[in-house]
């Protein structure tokens, strides 16, 4: 059956050999309001994400997609359970994960090039870099690397000196990806990174992210509410559902499935029978909507 084929695990023997890059054990997250009311967003989540996987987290608004990302990032601690990234527990935000949010991803007071150079420069020369003897040579070298990174993202050399407010949303996200990638993180976390973009920019960025993933194979965790985007990008799909008291402490992970990779471009792939069938299945699963007549 086409659907079963689409859900096949990709490169299963190789995947088995990969190490666990992100591990969540019994993770729950409950928020308490000022009135003392509690609201569980994530419940009993157990996940093992292997190195090099492209995991897409899908689900309706308020189901805990972004919370899951924030927990992996270390921005918030879980209420219960433990999280490990690259074999070490997550306690605070650090450079193990690269991060591309939906907006405000660039520092507005720096040009595209300065934004990309900022991370490596700060890492190597934390304070008053101009006092270090090797700084100027390093800066020159870094400038070349950052420019190449921007060109790789599909920007022109002339865009390097533009400030974020002079760039379109798509350009800003390209710079944000370059800014994260130049740090060579083992994990890339993208939180609805393309949600605010127009369809054509979105497709070109999806293809760019896939190319980068194929080349460098970072472990990707991509949060979206767009089913087609999720199916096009991911090698693994995690569907979250909104937690309710009826679940009685059970997990709100509705589905965790491996997807078959295809090298077809987005516009061709989305019209294949398998893709349409799978999209309909996942939409029904995550939003309770059936697209089939």
């Amino acid at each position: 059956m086409a659907l079963a084929a689409a859900l096949m695990q990709e490169e299963l023997p190789i995947a088995r050999k990969r190490r666990c890059e992100i591990g969540l054990k019994g993770v729950s997250k409950t928020y308490r309001s000022e009135k003392g009311e509690t609201r569980t967003v994530l419940s009993a989540v157990n996940l093992e994400i292997e190195a090099g996987e492209f995991v897409v987290v899908l689900g309706e608004t308020g189901c805990g997609k972004s919370t899951l990302l924030r927990l992996i990032l270390g921005e918030e601690p879980p209420s219960f359970g433990s999280i490990q990234v690259s074999g070490k527990p997550v306690k605070q935000i650090d450079a193990r994960c690269g991060y591309v949010p939906q907006k405000y991803s660039l520092f507005p007071n720096r040009t595209a090039l300065q934004n990309v150079m900022f991370g490596p420069r700060t890492a190597k020369y934390p304070l008053m870099p101009w006092l270090h003897p090797g700084f100027h040579a390093y800066r020159k070298e870094l400038k070349t690397e950052a420019t190449q990174q921007l060109l790789r993202m599909g920007l022109r050399a002339a865009d390097a000196n533009k400030y974020p407010h002079k760039m379109s949303g798509g350009m800003q996200q390209r710079v944000a990806i370059a800014q994260a990638l130049i740090m060579k993180p083992s994990v890339m976390l993208m939180d609805e990174a393309f949600s605010a973009l127009d369809p054509s920019t979105r497709i070109s960025l999806q293809e760019l992210v896939l190319d980068i993933w194929r080349e460098q194979r970072p472990t990707m965790v991509f949060v979206t509410h767009n089913v087609a985007e999720a199916l096009f990008l991911g090698t693994r799909l995690i569907v979250l559902g909104a937690y309710s008291e009826m679940m009685g402490g059970k997990t709100n992970v509705i589905a965790d499935m491996h997807l078959q990779r295809s090298d077809l471009p987005y516009l061709e792939r989305r019209h294949t029978k398998e893709f349409i069938e799978l999209q309909s299945y996942v939409e029904e699963l995550s939003y309770g909507i059936s697209c089939q007549p």
């Binding site: 990032l73 921005e75 650090d94 450079a95 900022f118 991370g119 700060t122 800014q179 994260a180 740090m183």
Partner: peptide, 27 residues
């Protein structure tokens, strides 16, 4: 200052003082 900026800065190996004086203060 958007929280995303601070989170991003930490993922770029910034220390606390870097975030305060190189990311937030100029903004």
């Amino acid at each position: 200052v958007p929280r995303e900026q601070i989170v991003k800065a930490f993922t770029l190996k910034c220390s606390n003082l870097d975030v305060a004086y190189r990311v937030v203060f100029p903004q």
